[in-house]
Amino acid sequence: MHVQIVLFDGFDPLDVIAPYEVLYAGGMFSDAAVSVELVSAEGPRDVVSGTGGLPLRATAALDPAQADLVLVPGAAGRLGGPDEVPEQDGDAEQGQQDASIPVLLGRTLTTELPGLLKKAMNDPEVTVATVCGGSLILGLAGLLEGRHATTHHLGMDTLEATGVHAVRARVVDDGDLVSGAGVTSGLDLALHLLEREVGPRIAHAVEELFAYERRGTVWRPQGPVPVDV
């Protein structure tokens, strides 16, 4: 399983590093059955995060034809007011540090990223995963209508407004779309993907390595609908 984790200007580092380490460790324990790289829509470059200007290096271009799994993080910045809407035509030269999360997410829509993510979503051989506000990028791009997904609790109303069936769960598995809620859910999401794609023994070995146990039940659109109590 080859994983491409997407970097964009203003990304949240923990949304990237947590699943990167889990998946990389999964590759070690599975004799390289998992490989992972950092990519951007523009190709190799230093990408500045929204957390103190911390940069990470994208070593390749996002290419869904080369990936089995594409993972999209959220953004880090000011929370923004309740009425602030994602900006889709903002000044690309403006620094990341004074921008709000809705603005940073909206700026991705002016790049090549939505088109590349659409290719990934349309490829039945590719799973798309998101952490935190990553699902909002796909939702705002019109790629998740009618799908089940989650995001940070502060973004649930926005996610629903894009036509998504928003689920208040830590990890939501909707087949070829797997989403995580708040920032640290990237750990749980990556461990779930390891268990699903490589096997529970590998996932358990990584859990032991990081001294971390997954939280909550992975939500799937299966089984009876709970009745009101």
Score class of each variant (00 low, 15 high):
S179R: 09
A190C: 03
A181R: 11
T59K: 05
T158W: 15
T51P: 00
R214S: 09
G186E: 14
G142E: 12
G180S: 12
R107V: 01
H153Y: 14
D174W: 14
V131T: 08
L54K: 03
V172W: 15
V126E: 09
G52D: 15
D123M: 03
A32I: 00
V16F: 12
G10W: 12
L187N: 11
D15A: 04
E93K: 10
P86Y: 15
E195R: 10
R196P: 00
V164R: 07
A18C: 07
L104N: 06
M121H: 04
G142S: 11
V47S: 06
S135D: 11
G77K: 11
M121K: 06
P221L: 14
G199I: 04
D83C: 01
L105R: 09
E42V: 06
L54D: 04
S185L: 09
W219Y: 14
A181I: 02
V6Y: 04
D89S: 14
P114I: 12
E112G: 08
E87S: 10
V70P: 00
L62K: 04
G26H: 09
S49R: 10
L187H: 10
M28W: 00
R196W: 09
G53C: 05
G134I: 01
A203F: 06
I137N: 06
E42R: 14
L187G: 04
R45V: 01
V172K: 14
L136K: 07
V167I: 15
L193T: 03
E207I: 00
A75S: 13
V6M: 07
V16M: 10
G77D: 11
T158L: 15
I137C: 03
L62N: 04
V72Q: 10
